[in-house]
Write a protein that binds this DNA or RNA. Structure first.
Length: 939
RNA sequence: GGGCGAGUGGCGGAACGGUAUACGCGGCGGACUUAAAAUCCGCUGCCGAAAGGCUUGUGGGUUCAAGUCCCACCUCGCCCACCA
């Protein structure tokens, strides 16, 4: 027997044993289940680096932990094997993507097996296998059958480099998320799955799952719900109407233009004949811009074209000019907006470039509405010194409201400017002023503490420029001027130091020329004037609905899922067209609809499959002359949207999945993978699951596929993500060779919190290695005569919540702490040691298995993984409390009884306490049972 | 512009409102060795010779007690972004 830890020997020994007795094959008929799922990898051929390991080690930890708790654990692995890289590699090396994929899977499998993880390979799925994609095709046809798959002609995202269309989710900042090429628009007839019909359910479902808030909010944002009103603007001298969507119906009296997206179908007919030439030109400049240009255009560059037509305001019957402008997007809402320049930033920018009137209809309302408010009118005077650019403020001190501009009440109908000039003179003596700006009314609720009343004030802000620094001391009001200090502040000081809402708002209006986009109180809005934004919105919506001019609607940003791809290496879309071009589902007996072999893979704007003679012939043989298959393939996200169901019956030839087994095993208990799938895969998988539940393919209760999601952080080297192209990949191989698989597993968990990105420290792993060496030696201290120790029990009690909260870095640390203690012992109880080994086995399976075996002098019961997880026992102990004197830690003392009196008397017997107290009287004592005794003494 | 998150030693990071800096890396000193590596032992937040004092981005507040709770600010990171 080895005296020293030889990881290579130990790991090889147990690999061989486990190979013979497979513990990882899950019996799916078992009831007490735990489904532990990794996001299955794309077999890229680049291989696994230490960053990939992290997630797999973590999922393996929980799979093994749950086994020890007695659960039947399913921990499968498979390959997301369709996709562009294999196809591109095949083009480059003049081979077949299948060959490339098979090779990659083989080497990936080898590398995954190095992990020593308990993957259940008997459940393996490979999405590019015909036995798998046969059922992906079946799934698509179920959507088709229920009217949820539809072929539509529309403007789609087109990647000119990959020569294929992309789903909205695959366009990142206007670029292809794979190759980074700028995405263009192209009109094509394509298959869609109607994700948008589930928009609301997909939002609601997020309530049921234990996912990181971050991911939930990412999904909510992506779905992009907004509640508003759709209303129709009649067109002057025309039967047509323009429907617009707004979330701010309360601003309707501020509409000064209607703006359509350039591609809007009504745009053309609205352009009056004499302006049509210019319109064509405008359209061309717009279409020359890619979406990126449009999105990144500066606000001042808002281009627009006036149609020459007019709309009729539904409530005022006034005429409003109609424009087209590319800041309005065809895809969102109705593709047309009502332009309210006074209260919308974009509309404002548009209005100033095109000299449109700006009509304010919302007055700011700040502060909380209070009881018994006393009404006053007042002013805020902002005085600017043009020679320094600084602003005049009065510092009243903390008690009286801090720093403010000059303010003051306004007597009955006194002109605001006169009030302001009087106040300025009284407080500061300045009289030589020029008024350069004035706000509308601003409503402010506040408590005037000095007067003891609640107030609602109507404030007017005025902006003065100092013409000269001449001060007239005779105007100063003597009883006031001692209470404050005059301070001239710079713009940024003002923004930092002035906190009063009404003052800072006035400043933003007058000096920063900001417009007001928040809710407030209506003005100049007919019979709605005076109402709050919320009250008015409700009333206006009701009135419009009564007059049949509009209706409350909810729109979503989520688009339908475009699933057609013009590439080879994917599941063929199982649709056959008759000679008239009508789509029909490929018959069940013809599934899988296999990929044709007689093709090159060169992309050319249409699918490579379209060039297959065999494919054309196959369709005619099966369906008759003139019939032909769809030549596109399905987005690979369709493949991965249901693989977690196939794991449950991977070889079933009769059905995609077994309904009963799915009902038993879903939802997945723990799903581990990177954050990068927050809006793509996770949304699609949720959508597909919902569809299957709704239509009875699985139990209607199973609406969410993944109960708990955990996003594993990346491992970086030199500050950036590991990638082969950057050449900063850390391979596990030399680490395994030198330190062992167990050490690497432990270090993966120890690096830091699991959800955080961490920088790879090449030396860090040696700490775990030393721990394992010391642990290996510890078995020699095991003895039957040693008593169970508190140390083990404390350890067990502390790791339990850590495991529940996924804080595995601290679980690793707790074990180190325990052996640091145990090393000081002469002997260690056999039972304690064995319990400890059980808890280590999910992290260090090889060494745990070895030490488990070694720890038995006789009656070795077999694998540690058949053991059960040790629970901490509660032990009655004397309470240890901390004693503090004047908030400073002095000593810990043991109590005989857990009450304040015995705590105090125990404390007083402590020599350190006595020394610190020096007989000073105790003024106050704070006692928290089991925690702390704080004695407050004088001096 | 909007949303979310984070600021703790030389580094990765610990800390139910109760001795801040656990655990590990690195560093320093020592043992073993002809020597190095590996391993083992001791020390290691900062200032100070020591006594002692100071310390969780900054400034306020609540509390007997704040890294932790509240307010404001600064810095960094991520995501979304002309979404009406």
């Amino acid at each position: 027997m080895d005296r020293h830890y030889n990881h290579q020997k130990i790991e090889q020994k147990w690999r061989d044993v486990w190979e013979k007795n497979k513990l990882s094959t899950a019996d799916l008929s078992s009831k007490d289940k735990y489904y532990c799922l990794d996001m299955f990898p794309y077999p890229s051929g680049d291989g696994l680096h230490v960053g990939h390991w992290r997630g797999y080690v973590m999922s393996d930890f929980y799979a093994r932990y749950q086994m020890l708790l007695g659960k039947t654990v399913l921990h499968p692995m498979g390959f997301d094997a369709f996709g562009l890289p294999a196809e591109n590699a095949a083009i480059k090396h003049k081979s077949h993507p299948k060959k490339f994929t098979d090779n990659a899977i083989e080497s990936f499998t080898k590398q995954l097996n190095q992990l020593g993880a308990c993957f259940d390979w008997s459940k393996r799925v490979v999405t590019s296998d015909p036995e798998y994609y046969r059922w992906t095709q079946w799934l698509f046809l179920q959507f088709f059958k229920h009217g949820m798959a539809e072929k539509r002609k529309s403007l789609v995202n087109w990647c000119p480099n990959d020569q294929t269309v992309l789903a909205n989710e695959q366009v990142v900042n206007g670029c292809c998320d794979r190759c980074g090429a700028k995405v263009t628009k192209k009109e094509l007839s394509q298959w869609y799955l109607k994700t948008s019909e589930y928009a609301q359910e997909l939002i609601d479902g997020l309530e049921q799952v234990k996912w990181p808030e971050r991911v939930k909010s990412l999904q909510r944002n992506w779905i992009g719900k907004s509640v508003g009103v759709e209303l129709a603007f009649k067109i002057k001298d025309s039967a047509s109407e323009i429907p617009v969507f707004t979330t701010r119906i309360d601003t309707i009296f501020g509409v000064t233009a209607i703006v359509l997206a350039p591609e809007h179908q009504l745009a053309k007919e609205l352009v009056v004949p004499e302006r049509s030439d210019g319109f064509q030109e405008y359209l061309q400049t717009v279409s020359a811009k890619t979406n990126v240009d449009r999105a990144q255009a500066k606000e001042s560059e808002k281009t627009a074209y006036e149609t020459g037509s007019f709309a009729i305001h539904p409530l005022t019957n006034k005429e409003i000019p109609i424009y087209v402008a590319d800041y309005v997007l065809l895809e969102y809402g109705t593709g047309a907006v009502m332009c309210v320049p006074a209260h919308d930033e974009r509309d404002y920018q548009f209005a100033i470039t095109h000299k449109l009137p700006i009509k304010p209809v919302i007055e700011p309302e700040t502060g909380e509405v209070l009881d018994n408010e006393e009404f006053r009118e007042s002013i805020i005077a902002i005085v600017e010194d043009p020679t320094t650019g600084k602003f005049l403020t009065l510092n009243w001190g903390k008690e009286l409201g801090g720093r403010l501009f000059i303010g003051g009440g306004r007597d009955n109908n006194e002109d605001a400017e006169i009030t302001a000039r009087r106040e300025i003179a009284e407080e500061t003596g300045y009289t030589d002023l020029e008024l350069i700006g004035q706000t509308g009314t601003l409503h402010h609720h506040y408590r005037a503490y000095s007067k003891g009343v609640n107030r609602i004030i109507d404030v007017t802000g005025l902006h003065f420029r100092l013409k000269s620094k001449k001060q007239d001391p005779t105007k100063l009001e003597d009883n006031e001027i001692d209470k404050f200090k005059i301070e001239w502040l710079t713009k940024s000081e003002v923004e930092r130091l002035i906190v009063d809402e009404s003052h800072i708002l006035s400043f933003h209006f007058l000096v920063n020329k900001q417009i007001y986009t928040d809710k407030g109180r209506l003005t100049d809005s007919g019979s709605y004037s005076g109402l709050s934004s919320d009250e008015a919105s409700e009333k206006i919506t009701n009135d419009l609905e009564k007059k049949k001019l509009g209706k409350a609607v909810t729109t979503y940003r989520l688009r339908d899922w475009l699933v057609s791809r013009q590439r080879y290496w994917g599941a063929p879309i199982p649709i056959v067209y008759d000679p008239q071009g009508q789509p029909h589902p490929v018959k069940d007996e013809h599934l899988p609809l296999r990929l044709p072999e007689d093709v090159d893979f060169l992309p050319g704007g249409e699918s490579p499959i379209a060039r297959s003679a065999e494919y054309k012939e196959r369709a005619e043989t099966l369906y008759g002359k003139g019939w032909y298959f769809d030549t596109d393939t399905l987005d690979t996200f369709v493949d991965s949207s249901w693989y977690f169901l196939r794991y449950l019956s991977p070889t079933d030839e009769k059905q995609a999945f077994d309904k009963k087994t799915v009902n038993d095993w879903l939802p997945v208990d723990l799903y581990i993978g990177g954050i990068e799938h927050a809006t793509l895969h996770l949304l699609y998988a949720r959508f597909v699951t919902r569809f299957l539940a709704k239509h009875g393919y699985i139990d209607a209760k199973i609406t969410e596929p993944f109960m708990q999601l955990y996003n594993i952080g990346m491992v970086n080297l030199h500050g950036s993500k590991m990638s082969k192209s950057k050449g900063n990949v850390v391979s596990p191989d030399p680490l395994i060779e030198h330190y062992g698989t167990d050490a690497l597993r432990g270090y993966e968990l120890f690096m830091g919190p699991m959800e955080i990105d961490v920088e790879w420290n090449p030396r860090g792993i040696s700490g775990i290695h030393r721990f394992l060496i010391r642990l290996y030696k510890l078995v020699e201290k095991v003895s039957d005569s040693a008593k169970p120790s508190d140390e083990l029990n404390n350890y067990l009690a502390s790791i339990e919540p850590m495991i529940a909260e996924f804080r595995l870095n601290t679980v690793v640390a707790e074990a180190m702490k325990l052996i640091n203690n145990w090393e000081k012992f002469e002997t260690i109880s056999r039972g304690d040691f064995q319990k400890f080994i059980i808890t280590l086995s999910p992290i260090y399976p090889f060494l745990a298995e070895e030490l488990w075996e070694k720890s038995f002098s006789s009656n070795y019961p077999g694998s540690v993984f058949a053991a059960s997880w040790p629970k901490a026992t509660t032990i009655e102990r004397l309470k240890t409390i901390k004693v503090l004197i004047n908030q400073k830690f002095i000593a810990t003392v043991e109590l005989t009884a857990n009450d304040e009196e015995s705590a105090v008397s125990a404390a007083l017997q402590d020599p350190q306490v006595e020394k610190t107290l020096l007989n000073r009287p105790i003024i106050k004592r704070i006692y928290k049972p089991g925690e702390v005794l704080n004695l407050i003494v004088s001096g």
